[in-house]
């Protein structure tokens, strides 16, 4: 199981703040998690379409497509940041 967290605009778009996601196998990658979410279709496919500026953090650290995701990890989807 991993914890998926959606921030800011993505939380509004998906209509949920967080969810638990069953993990098939002992580990996966950020790219595979995004692909699985895209497969839900609709708003998920739109917001996470390749080329959209969504960044991913694994355990509160910015990650890349190839970054590993293991059971118990928190995987957050971040729209482009606008602080300061």
């Amino acid at each position: 199981m991993i914890r998926l967290v959606y921030l800011a605009r993505l939380r509004d778009a998906f209509g949920t703040r967080a969810e638990d996601w069953p993990l098939a196998g002992s580990s996966t990658t950020v790219a595979a998690v995004l692909e699985a979410l895209r497969a839900r279709g609709g708003i998920w496919a739109d917001e996470l379409a390749p080329g959209r500026a969504v960044r991913v953090a694994v355990n509160q650290t910015l990650a890349h497509d190839e970054s590993a995701v293991a059971p118990g990890d928190e995987v957050a989807l971040l729209p482009p940041v606008t602080g300061g």
Binding site: L7, A8, R9, L78, V81, G83, G84
Partner: peptide, 11 residues
């Protein structure tokens, strides 16, 4: 760097 890397969002 804060503007582009720190996770803040304005509404």
């Amino acid at each position: 760097y804060l503007k582009t890397r720190a996770p803040f969002w304005k509404k």
